[in-house]
Amino acid sequence: MTARDRLFANLGRALAMAPGRVSPAEAAARLDRRTPNLIPDRAQGSGEELVERFVQWAERVQATTARVATLADVPAAAADFLNRHNLPQRLRLAPHPLIEGLDWSSRPLIEVASGRAEAHDLSSLALAFAGIAETGTLMLHSGPQTPTTLNFLPDNHIVLLPARAIAGSYEAAWARLRAAFGDDWPRTVNLVTGPSRTADIEQELILGAHGPRRLHIIIVDDDARQEG
């Protein structure tokens, strides 16, 4: 008998009469219903209300935000961030059409390259799948166009977040992810709430422990792709 067989035999015996035991069919039905358990009031609402709440909670955890009207405004917003922090004018871009399609001609000094992040990359521009208003959390996932290293290796993590991608609750964001991927779930889903931090030395809060020291979220009101 393998360790697995022994474990399941033990579990079966110990649980046969357990209070709260349900049939496999009932358990499967519970799973399929995917009913949210309890959504706090703070996660309710829609539209502008959620965007504002997202910004409020994200800034509470030391993320910075910028709000722009269209994708055409993103390069300037990214450049402002780099300038504000006196950072080198180089960006590693997510190889996603929405990011790669940005027009950087108004910011000719910025050197951009797409792909996964490398050890020497100081700043990245990633694309969030969703924002979650209740805690100012970003949802990002891995994939050929959205490598995970962009979210962790660079010191400066700039994230493009379409305003319409801001959901109220974690559950609402999961529902969108399920709808987008079905059974073909991505390897990694990151919920990111503020930049990296530690309090391991005398409980003093210090940003930039291993992941990004800065998280800058550019919220784009209209993320329709630019023509031409």
Partner: peptide
């Protein structure tokens, strides 16, 4: 409110 990184 939430830890910084919750990774699935």
């Amino acid at each position: 409110e939430m830890s910084v990184y919750t990774t699935f």
